[in-house]
Computed example of a mutant assay.
Amino acid sequence: MAVEAADPVGVLVVDKPAGASSHDVVARCRKLFRTRRVGHAGTLDPMATGVLVVGVGWATRLLTYMVGHDKTYLATVRLGVATVTDDAEGEVSGGADASHLVRNDVEAACGPLRGDVLQVPSSVSAIKVDGRRSYARVRSGEDVALRARPVTVHGLELLAVRPGRAAGPGGEQHGVLDVDVRAEVSSGTYVRALARDLGVALGVGGHLTELRRTRSGPFEQAEAFDVPGRRVGDDVLDAARLAVAPHLLDLSAVARRCFEVREVDAATATLLGHGRRLPAWGTGPAPVAAIDPDGRLVALVADVEGQARGVLVVPPELRPPAG
């Protein structure tokens, strides 16, 4: 498929608002950039806010190779109440008075949740079970038990604790403890499940009440932008487009952030651009960004069957002459 050089191409770091799904953000960006070719690199639940990495135009091809980044979250866990979804959107399913808990109790319970752990994902996750999303099975009344999977919790920092009162499983008010944490986790870690497991460890139940992603790989909340809703006028869209366009990260900038870089000479760049295979680079199966003498991304290259080959080659029209 031919690529029009005038089409918007790049990666935008979006600050997803609460209540919007990741798909909603994609729909807004399609309208903003006037293209159907928009995708994201890592879902955020509707209740969550923060960093959502969005690819525009041909840059959507890069997203496949950008998943798997570590992420950082700020979260609030309510101890004393459990829900069927492990977050504030689900019905109360259990819990016990937590008024006896103090900061040291919570800190001690956080210890076993750090490091390399086996985590059972929330049953309302998007994981497929026999071809159907787990959350769809739960909503249809099925009991779903997902298998534990290895994840890494690089850091789980306790920031603050606030005692309070809330409705328990019978509707009665009892003591709860709201806990603010900073979590640095590997891809595939469910912060909702951390909230649930912290509540289980303390014997009072727990669920997530707030979640904000502050980092996804090399992309930080400081560079994230708001995108307008779908039901706005053309004048608002035009203003937003002008404001955001300069911050659309180009392919080379994204590649330098997300991949190991190999500087190549002009001859090698030409060969890679034509899909030619080269002697193995010794870099292994993980993609490496091949950057030409003018600083442009030529291809993502990986060692495959003893040869280095472009697993994703940038079209020539997206590699304009330097200067």
Rank of each mutant, 00 (worst) to 15 (best):
V3C: 13
V3I: 12
E4N: 15
A6W: 04
D7I: 01
G10D: 07
V13P: 05
V13E: 09
P17H: 13
S21W: 03
H23V: 04
V25F: 08
V26Q: 11
R28W: 05
C29G: 07
R34I: 04
R36W: 07
V38R: 07
M47I: 05
A48T: 02
A48N: 09
A48H: 08
G50W: 03
L52N: 07
W58Q: 12
A59D: 05
L63W: 02
L63E: 05
T64G: 15
Y73N: 12
A82Y: 04
A82V: 02
V84A: 15
T85I: 06
D86H: 12
D87R: 11
G90I: 08
G95A: 11
N104V: 12
N104S: 15
E107L: 14
E107D: 14
E107G: 08
C110H: 07
L113R: 12
S125F: 06
D130H: 10
D130I: 00
G131F: 05
G131V: 01
R133H: 06
D143R: 15
R147V: 05
A148M: 06
G155F: 02
G155R: 15
L156F: 12
L158V: 03
L159Y: 01
L159K: 07
V161G: 10
P163I: 10
G164P: 01
A167L: 10
G170C: 05
G171R: 09
V176N: 11
D180M: 03
R182H: 08
R182F: 01
E184I: 09
S187E: 08
S187V: 01
V191H: 07
V191T: 06
G199F: 04
L202Q: 10
V204Y: 09
G206R: 06
L208G: 08
L208P: 06
R215K: 12
F219S: 10
A222F: 04
E223T: 13
E223I: 12
P228F: 07
R231M: 13
R231L: 14
V232K: 09
V236Q: 13
A243H: 05
A245D: 11
A245Y: 03
H247W: 09
L249P: 01
R256W: 02
R256C: 08
V261I: 04
V264H: 10
D265L: 06
A266H: 05
H274L: 13
H274C: 09
R276L: 10
L278G: 02
P279A: 08
A280N: 00
W281P: 00
W281A: 00
D294C: 10
V298E: 09
L300V: 01
D303H: 00
D303G: 00
R309A: 10
G310N: 03
L312G: 00
V313L: 14
E317V: 10
L318P: 05
